[in-house]
């Protein structure tokens, strides 16, 4: 593991170097103005073909990835004038991520939802959120009686709240549905999407019982000042139009030992996240000692997301 990580860090350092060099060259060209605009275009002209024939993530060599990441970083620099760093943290041996959410403590403030959007560079217009917070009727677990468009002060006396996001299922219907393997479960359990391989058929979205997938019907837009520059290739990098995206448990953070953004934003401590394979992890303790409830358990998806009481 440590060796892997060392290589990874070295590689990222190189990628960063390439990205910076390209970025500064592009800035220089921009300063030169209209006369060199054609030169800049011809430089960019090679990119569409490279992008069009780009292979599936799992077929890319480290060299391919370096070039692709550099290209993507340069594109963001071009389009938004923001220097971003795209990394590709690998799953860690002996780690299987899981989430537990305390239904008794959640107050429905939706801070997780907005922190998620900020962290993951999801489109602000049209507005996209991975997390849906359901306002549930007390006395019922039926999500069909829930309300997602509630407003005003929370919590109310008549309701409790249930945030829903990707459940990272062990038997994920979305993964099976995809006709081109553009989405798959990583060894640590996180279901990811190769945004450059997805053909946009939306069958995975139809298959998901948790309404966890989001499609970019329009060009996603994020204000340059709001772009999170710390980006994972399989997670929060800026997505193109016409592809699917979803929650990745913030893998660009969590694979480096940080907590997901939604958890850090939660003011009530309702959210617990960790390694299911570690007997001492908090999430494991919750599952072993609390009363746990699984949403749509009848769908047979075996999610890595647990709701609990207490």
């Amino acid at each position: 593991m440590s060796e892997d990580h060392q290589n990874d860090d070295e590689r990222e350092a190189v990628v960063e170097g390439v990205g910076k060099a390209q970025a500064s060259r592009r800035r220089f060209l921009q300063v030169l103005g209209a006369a060199t605009a054609t030169a800049a275009t011809s430089q960019a002209d090679a990119a569409p073909w490279e992008e069009y024939f780009q292979q599936h993530y799992k077929r890319l060599t480290d060299e391919d990835k370096r070039e692709i990441f550099a290209r993507l970083e340069a594109e963001v620099q071009d389009k938004y004038g923001v220097a971003v760093h795209i990394s590709d943290p690998k799953p860690i041996d002996g780690v299987e991520f899981a989430y537990a959410l305390n239904l008794q403590a959640c107050v429905g403030c939706r801070r997780c939802e907005y922190a998620c959007a900020q962290e993951n560079n999801t489109s602000r217009s049209p507005e996209m959120h991975y997390i849906r917070v359901l306002q549930m009727d007390k006395g019922s677990l039926d999500v069909e009686r829930s309300n997602t468009t509630y407003e005003g002060a929370v919590p109310t006396a008549e309701h409790y709240y249930q945030p829903v996001q990707c459940h990272q299922c062990r038997d994920a219907p979305c993964v099976r549905a995809c006709p081109v393997n553009a989405t798959w479960a990583e060894p640590d359990g996180i279901v990811v999407v190769d945004y450059n391989w997805c053909i946009g058929c939306r069958y995975c979205e139809a298959a998901c019982p948790y309404f966890a997938r989001r499609f970019n019907y329009e060009e996603p837009t994020v204000r340059p000042s709001e772009i999170n520059p710390d980006q994972g290739y399989l997670s929060n990098r800026l997505r193109p139009r016409g592809v699917m995206e979803k929650c990745t448990y913030c893998l660009h953070r969590t694979r480096k030992g940080l907590m997901p953004a939604c958890l850090e934003a939660c003011p009530t401590g309702s959210r617990k996240f960790g390694n299911l394979l570690d007997p001492n992890s908090e999430v494991r303790q919750v599952i072993e000692t609390k009363r746990v409830y699984i949403l749509h358990e009848d769908a047979g998806t075996n999610p890595r997301f647990y709701y609990y009481f207490g």
Binding site: V180, C198, I199, G200, C201
Partner: peptide, 10 residues
Amino acid sequence: LGHPELFWHL
């Protein structure tokens, strides 16, 4: 399809 031009992925 969102990306009909990527049909070759199939």
